[in-house]
Write a protein that binds this DNA or RNA. Structure first.
Lengths: 151, 151
DNA sequence: TTAATATGTTAGCGTCGTCTAACTTGCTGA
DNA sequence: TCAGCAAGTTAGACGACGCTAACATATTAA
Protein backbone atom coordinates (compact mmCIF):
# COMPACT_ATOMS: atom_id res chain seq x y z
CA UNK A 1 0.00 0.00 0.00
CA UNK A 2 1.46 3.32 -1.09
CA UNK A 3 0.20 6.54 0.44
CA UNK A 4 0.19 9.89 -1.31
CA UNK A 5 2.46 12.60 0.11
CA UNK A 6 -0.59 14.29 1.44
CA UNK A 7 -1.89 11.27 3.31
CA UNK A 8 1.60 10.64 4.69
CA UNK A 9 1.58 14.18 6.04
CA UNK A 10 -1.73 13.60 7.76
CA UNK A 11 -0.58 10.36 9.29
CA UNK A 12 2.62 11.94 10.52
CA UNK A 13 0.75 14.87 12.04
CA UNK A 14 -1.55 12.40 13.75
CA UNK A 15 1.18 10.43 15.44
CA UNK A 16 2.86 13.65 16.54
CA UNK A 17 -0.37 14.81 18.14
CA UNK A 18 -0.89 11.44 19.73
CA UNK A 19 2.61 11.48 21.19
CA UNK A 20 2.52 15.06 22.42
CA UNK A 21 -1.13 15.67 23.27
CA UNK A 22 -2.36 12.16 23.90
CA UNK A 23 -5.27 12.63 21.52
CA UNK A 24 -5.87 13.44 17.90
CA UNK A 25 -8.45 16.06 17.03
CA UNK A 26 -9.49 17.45 13.69
CA UNK A 27 -8.71 21.06 14.60
CA UNK A 28 -5.26 20.21 15.84
CA UNK A 29 -4.40 18.43 12.63
CA UNK A 30 -5.86 21.35 10.76
CA UNK A 31 -3.68 23.81 12.68
CA UNK A 32 -0.55 21.70 12.41
CA UNK A 33 -0.77 21.21 8.66
CA UNK A 34 -2.34 24.61 7.97
CA UNK A 35 -5.24 23.22 6.01
CA UNK A 36 -8.98 23.61 6.51
CA UNK A 37 -10.81 21.22 8.77
CA UNK A 38 -12.85 20.06 5.83
CA UNK A 39 -9.66 18.91 4.14
CA UNK A 40 -8.73 17.01 7.26
CA UNK A 41 -12.10 15.33 7.09
CA UNK A 42 -11.51 14.19 3.56
CA UNK A 43 -8.17 12.70 4.58
CA UNK A 44 -9.73 11.00 7.58
CA UNK A 45 -12.19 9.20 5.34
CA UNK A 46 -9.38 7.90 3.16
CA UNK A 47 -7.15 6.78 6.00
CA UNK A 48 -10.14 5.08 7.56
CA UNK A 49 -10.77 3.15 4.37
CA UNK A 50 -7.16 2.02 4.44
CA UNK A 51 -7.62 0.80 8.01
CA UNK A 52 -4.90 3.11 9.27
CA UNK A 53 -7.21 4.93 11.67
CA UNK A 54 -10.61 4.55 13.22
CA UNK A 55 -12.96 7.45 13.66
CA UNK A 56 -16.56 8.03 14.61
CA UNK A 57 -18.54 11.16 13.98
CA UNK A 58 -17.48 13.87 16.42
CA UNK A 59 -15.04 11.50 18.08
CA UNK A 60 -11.27 11.42 18.34
CA UNK A 61 -9.09 9.93 15.66
CA UNK A 62 -7.48 6.69 16.76
CA UNK A 63 -4.49 5.18 15.01
CA UNK A 64 -4.77 1.45 14.40
CA UNK A 65 -1.74 -0.77 14.93
CA UNK A 66 -1.19 -0.75 11.20
CA UNK A 67 -1.52 3.01 11.21
CA UNK A 68 0.97 3.43 14.00
CA UNK A 69 3.53 1.28 12.23
CA UNK A 70 3.12 3.22 9.00
CA UNK A 71 3.26 6.53 10.84
CA UNK A 72 6.42 5.53 12.68
CA UNK A 73 8.05 4.61 9.39
CA UNK A 74 7.30 8.02 7.99
CA UNK A 75 8.43 9.69 11.18
CA UNK A 76 11.71 7.80 11.12
CA UNK A 77 12.40 8.93 7.59
CA UNK A 78 11.72 12.47 8.63
CA UNK A 79 14.09 12.29 11.57
CA UNK A 80 16.93 10.73 9.62
CA UNK A 81 16.67 13.16 6.74
CA UNK A 82 16.51 16.02 9.16
CA UNK A 83 19.61 14.71 10.90
CA UNK A 84 21.48 14.57 7.63
CA UNK A 85 20.49 18.11 6.78
CA UNK A 86 21.57 19.56 10.10
CA UNK A 87 24.62 17.43 10.91
CA UNK A 88 26.13 17.09 7.45
CA UNK A 89 24.81 20.04 5.48
CA UNK A 90 24.77 22.41 8.44
CA UNK A 91 21.20 23.61 7.99
CA UNK A 92 19.26 25.14 10.85
CA UNK A 93 16.77 22.94 12.66
CA UNK A 94 13.83 24.78 11.15
CA UNK A 95 15.14 24.65 7.63
CA UNK A 96 16.03 20.99 7.98
CA UNK A 97 12.58 20.25 9.31
CA UNK A 98 10.90 22.15 6.51
CA UNK A 99 12.88 20.37 3.81
CA UNK A 100 12.66 16.96 5.46
CA UNK A 101 8.86 17.27 5.26
CA UNK A 102 9.12 17.35 1.50
CA UNK A 103 12.00 14.97 0.90
CA UNK A 104 10.60 12.26 3.15
CA UNK A 105 7.89 11.50 0.63
CA UNK A 106 10.24 11.00 -2.27
CA UNK A 107 12.98 8.71 -0.95
CA UNK A 108 12.57 5.08 -1.86
CA UNK A 109 12.96 2.58 0.93
CA UNK A 110 16.30 1.50 -0.42
CA UNK A 111 17.69 4.99 -0.76
CA UNK A 112 16.50 5.84 2.71
CA UNK A 113 18.33 2.85 4.14
CA UNK A 114 21.46 3.87 2.34
CA UNK A 115 21.22 7.35 3.79
CA UNK A 116 20.84 5.86 7.23
CA UNK A 117 23.88 3.64 6.71
CA UNK A 118 25.83 6.58 5.38
CA UNK A 119 25.19 8.57 8.53
CA UNK A 120 26.07 5.64 10.74
CA UNK A 121 29.16 4.90 8.74
CA UNK A 122 30.37 8.45 8.90
CA UNK A 123 29.74 8.65 12.61
CA UNK A 124 31.63 5.44 13.25
CA UNK A 125 34.39 6.01 10.76
CA UNK A 126 37.93 6.15 12.16
CA UNK A 127 39.01 8.86 9.73
CA UNK A 128 35.90 10.87 10.41
CA UNK A 129 35.83 13.04 13.50
CA UNK A 130 32.49 14.73 13.80
CA UNK A 131 33.66 17.83 15.59
CA UNK A 132 36.71 18.35 13.47
CA UNK A 133 34.65 17.77 10.38
CA UNK A 134 31.95 20.16 11.44
CA UNK A 135 34.49 22.83 12.16
CA UNK A 136 36.26 22.54 8.86
CA UNK A 137 33.04 22.23 6.89
CA UNK A 138 31.82 25.43 8.48
CA UNK A 139 35.05 27.13 7.53
CA UNK A 140 34.65 25.87 4.00
CA UNK A 141 31.06 27.12 3.94
CA UNK A 142 32.09 30.54 5.16
CA UNK A 143 34.74 30.94 2.53
CA UNK A 144 32.60 29.69 -0.31
CA UNK A 145 29.55 31.67 0.78
CA UNK A 146 31.51 34.86 1.19
CA UNK A 147 32.76 34.38 -2.35
CA UNK A 148 29.14 34.11 -3.43
CA UNK A 149 28.15 37.31 -1.66
CA UNK A 150 30.84 39.17 -3.56
CA UNK A 151 29.59 37.89 -6.90
CA UNK B 1 8.04 32.06 -10.48
CA UNK B 2 7.72 28.58 -9.02
CA UNK B 3 7.04 25.62 -11.29
CA UNK B 4 5.17 22.49 -10.28
CA UNK B 5 7.14 19.24 -10.22
CA UNK B 6 5.32 18.22 -13.33
CA UNK B 7 6.24 21.33 -15.30
CA UNK B 8 9.83 21.02 -14.10
CA UNK B 9 9.87 17.50 -15.50
CA UNK B 10 8.63 18.72 -18.85
CA UNK B 11 11.20 21.49 -18.98
CA UNK B 12 13.99 19.10 -18.10
CA UNK B 13 12.90 16.62 -20.74
CA UNK B 14 12.83 19.43 -23.25
CA UNK B 15 16.38 20.56 -22.63
CA UNK B 16 17.59 16.97 -22.77
CA UNK B 17 15.94 16.51 -26.14
CA UNK B 18 17.33 19.79 -27.34
CA UNK B 19 20.83 18.81 -26.29
CA UNK B 20 20.71 15.29 -27.65
CA UNK B 21 18.42 15.50 -30.66
CA UNK B 22 18.70 19.15 -31.56
CA UNK B 23 14.95 19.56 -31.60
CA UNK B 24 12.03 19.18 -29.27
CA UNK B 25 8.96 17.31 -30.48
CA UNK B 26 5.76 16.45 -28.69
CA UNK B 27 6.08 12.69 -29.26
CA UNK B 28 9.63 12.60 -27.98
CA UNK B 29 8.64 14.36 -24.79
CA UNK B 30 5.70 12.00 -24.54
CA UNK B 31 7.96 8.96 -24.92
CA UNK B 32 10.60 10.29 -22.54
CA UNK B 33 8.19 11.08 -19.72
CA UNK B 34 5.81 8.23 -20.50
CA UNK B 35 2.73 10.38 -20.67
CA UNK B 36 0.22 10.84 -23.46
CA UNK B 37 0.84 13.42 -26.11
CA UNK B 38 -2.28 15.23 -25.02
CA UNK B 39 -0.74 15.72 -21.59
CA UNK B 40 2.35 17.14 -23.22
CA UNK B 41 0.14 19.58 -25.04
CA UNK B 42 -1.40 20.78 -21.81
CA UNK B 43 2.05 21.35 -20.35
CA UNK B 44 3.18 23.18 -23.48
CA UNK B 45 0.35 25.65 -23.10
CA UNK B 46 1.35 26.38 -19.52
CA UNK B 47 5.06 26.74 -20.22
CA UNK B 48 4.22 29.00 -23.13
CA UNK B 49 2.16 31.24 -20.86
CA UNK B 50 5.15 31.46 -18.54
CA UNK B 51 7.36 32.51 -21.47
CA UNK B 52 9.64 29.54 -20.96
CA UNK B 53 9.04 28.18 -24.46
CA UNK B 54 7.57 29.25 -27.74
CA UNK B 55 5.47 26.96 -29.86
CA UNK B 56 3.26 27.19 -32.92
CA UNK B 57 0.68 24.67 -33.99
CA UNK B 58 2.39 21.59 -35.43
CA UNK B 59 5.79 23.21 -34.95
CA UNK B 60 8.77 22.37 -32.78
CA UNK B 61 9.03 23.49 -29.21
CA UNK B 62 11.66 26.17 -28.70
CA UNK B 63 13.11 27.05 -25.32
CA UNK B 64 13.35 30.77 -24.68
CA UNK B 65 16.44 32.18 -22.96
CA UNK B 66 14.47 32.26 -19.72
CA UNK B 67 13.38 28.70 -20.32
CA UNK B 68 16.91 27.52 -20.96
CA UNK B 69 18.18 29.09 -17.77
CA UNK B 70 15.40 27.54 -15.74
CA UNK B 71 15.89 24.16 -17.39
CA UNK B 72 19.62 24.24 -16.74
CA UNK B 73 18.98 24.98 -13.09
CA UNK B 74 16.74 21.94 -12.83
CA UNK B 75 19.21 19.83 -14.75
CA UNK B 76 22.05 20.87 -12.46
CA UNK B 77 20.07 19.86 -9.40
CA UNK B 78 19.38 16.51 -10.98
CA UNK B 79 23.03 15.90 -11.75
CA UNK B 80 24.28 16.87 -8.31
CA UNK B 81 21.69 14.82 -6.46
CA UNK B 82 22.41 11.88 -8.71
CA UNK B 83 26.11 12.27 -7.98
CA UNK B 84 25.48 12.23 -4.26
CA UNK B 85 23.35 9.12 -4.54
CA UNK B 86 25.91 7.18 -6.55
CA UNK B 87 29.17 8.45 -5.08
CA UNK B 88 28.20 8.69 -1.44
CA UNK B 89 25.28 6.32 -1.00
CA UNK B 90 26.54 3.80 -3.52
CA UNK B 91 23.33 3.54 -5.53
CA UNK B 92 23.35 2.28 -9.10
CA UNK B 93 23.17 4.84 -11.88
CA UNK B 94 19.61 3.90 -12.75
CA UNK B 95 18.40 3.99 -9.19
CA UNK B 96 20.14 7.29 -8.55
CA UNK B 97 18.62 8.73 -11.68
CA UNK B 98 15.16 7.53 -10.76
CA UNK B 99 15.33 8.99 -7.26
CA UNK B 100 17.01 12.22 -8.35
CA UNK B 101 14.00 12.83 -10.62
CA UNK B 102 11.82 12.99 -7.57
CA UNK B 103 14.12 14.67 -5.08
CA UNK B 104 15.17 17.44 -7.44
CA UNK B 105 11.74 19.04 -7.13
CA UNK B 106 11.78 19.23 -3.38
CA UNK B 107 15.19 20.67 -2.47
CA UNK B 108 15.17 24.36 -1.71
CA UNK B 109 17.83 26.43 -3.41
CA UNK B 110 19.70 26.80 -0.17
CA UNK B 111 19.68 23.12 0.66
CA UNK B 112 20.78 22.29 -2.83
CA UNK B 113 23.74 24.65 -2.52
CA UNK B 114 24.69 23.04 0.74
CA UNK B 115 24.60 19.60 -0.83
CA UNK B 116 26.83 20.85 -3.59
CA UNK B 117 29.29 22.31 -1.09
CA UNK B 118 29.19 19.12 0.91
CA UNK B 119 30.22 17.08 -2.10
CA UNK B 120 32.96 19.52 -3.02
CA UNK B 121 34.18 19.65 0.54
CA UNK B 122 34.30 15.92 0.86
CA UNK B 123 36.13 15.57 -2.41
CA UNK B 124 38.72 18.15 -1.46
CA UNK B 125 39.04 17.15 2.15
CA UNK B 126 42.51 16.03 3.28
CA UNK B 127 41.09 13.38 5.59
CA UNK B 128 38.77 12.11 2.91
CA UNK B 129 40.18 9.78 0.30
CA UNK B 130 37.47 8.93 -2.19
CA UNK B 131 38.70 5.48 -3.10
CA UNK B 132 39.51 4.44 0.41
CA UNK B 133 36.20 5.77 1.56
CA UNK B 134 34.28 3.99 -1.15
CA UNK B 135 35.99 0.74 -0.33
CA UNK B 136 35.28 0.89 3.36
CA UNK B 137 31.73 2.14 2.89
CA UNK B 138 31.05 -0.79 0.61
CA UNK B 139 32.45 -3.13 3.22
CA UNK B 140 30.24 -1.51 5.81
CA UNK B 141 27.24 -1.85 3.51
CA UNK B 142 27.92 -5.50 2.91
CA UNK B 143 28.15 -6.31 6.58
CA UNK B 144 25.08 -4.34 7.52
CA UNK B 145 23.03 -5.61 4.59
CA UNK B 146 23.98 -9.21 5.24
CA UNK B 147 22.80 -8.75 8.81
CA UNK B 148 19.50 -7.53 7.39
CA UNK B 149 19.13 -10.52 5.12
CA UNK B 150 19.52 -12.80 8.12
CA UNK B 151 16.81 -11.00 10.05
C1' DT C 1 0.86 11.37 -56.25
C1' DT C 2 -1.49 9.54 -52.95
C1' DA C 3 -2.52 6.25 -49.32
C1' DA C 4 -0.88 4.80 -45.12
C1' DT C 5 1.36 6.00 -41.07
C1' DA C 6 3.27 9.15 -37.78
C1' DT C 7 2.65 13.20 -35.36
C1' DG C 8 0.01 16.79 -33.18
C1' DT C 9 -4.41 18.73 -31.34
C1' DT C 10 -8.86 19.14 -29.05
C1' DA C 11 -12.68 17.91 -26.16
C1' DG C 12 -14.23 15.76 -22.39
C1' DC C 13 -13.68 12.96 -18.37
C1' DG C 14 -11.73 11.16 -13.64
C1' DT C 15 -9.00 11.67 -9.48
C1' DC C 16 -6.66 14.13 -5.97
C1' DG C 17 -6.40 17.58 -2.79
C1' DT C 18 -7.55 21.90 -1.62
C1' DC C 19 -10.99 25.60 -0.61
C1' DT C 20 -15.53 28.26 1.06
C1' DA C 21 -20.03 28.35 2.91
C1' DA C 22 -23.45 26.54 5.49
C1' DC C 23 -24.64 23.46 8.67
C1' DT C 24 -24.68 20.35 13.14
C1' DT C 25 -22.96 19.01 17.44
C1' DG C 26 -20.42 19.63 21.79
C1' DC C 27 -18.70 22.34 25.47
C1' DT C 28 -18.34 25.98 28.85
C1' DG C 29 -18.79 29.89 31.77
C1' DA C 30 -21.89 33.69 33.31
C1' DT D 1 -28.95 26.12 32.36
C1' DC D 2 -28.54 27.85 28.20
C1' DA D 3 -26.27 31.19 24.96
C1' DG D 4 -22.56 31.56 22.51
C1' DC D 5 -18.46 29.84 20.82
C1' DA D 6 -15.49 25.98 19.49
C1' DA D 7 -15.25 21.82 17.04
C1' DG D 8 -16.69 18.85 13.49
C1' DT D 9 -19.23 17.83 9.18
C1' DT D 10 -21.21 18.18 4.53
C1' DA D 11 -21.92 19.94 -0.04
C1' DG D 12 -20.17 21.92 -3.84
C1' DA D 13 -16.52 24.28 -6.48
C1' DC D 14 -11.98 24.59 -8.46
C1' DG D 15 -7.28 23.84 -10.35
C1' DA D 16 -3.63 20.58 -11.55
C1' DC D 17 -2.66 16.71 -14.10
C1' DG D 18 -3.38 12.59 -16.01
C1' DC D 19 -6.26 9.77 -19.42
C1' DT D 20 -9.10 8.22 -23.88
C1' DA D 21 -11.33 9.08 -28.16
C1' DA D 22 -11.79 11.50 -32.10
C1' DC D 23 -9.97 14.49 -35.16
C1' DA D 24 -6.39 17.33 -38.06
C1' DT D 25 -2.08 17.78 -40.15
C1' DA D 26 2.47 16.24 -41.78
C1' DT D 27 5.52 12.91 -43.66
C1' DT D 28 6.89 9.03 -46.17
C1' DA D 29 7.12 5.13 -49.12
C1' DA D 30 4.98 2.51 -52.89
Amino acid sequence: MTLSSSLEDYLEAMIDLFNHEGKIRVSDISAKLRVEKSSVNTAIKKLKNLNLITHEKYGEVILTEKGKIKAEEIKEKHIIISKFLTDFLGLSDQEADRDACKIEHTLSGHTFKRLLFFIQFMEESPFFDKNKWKESFNKYLESVESLEREA
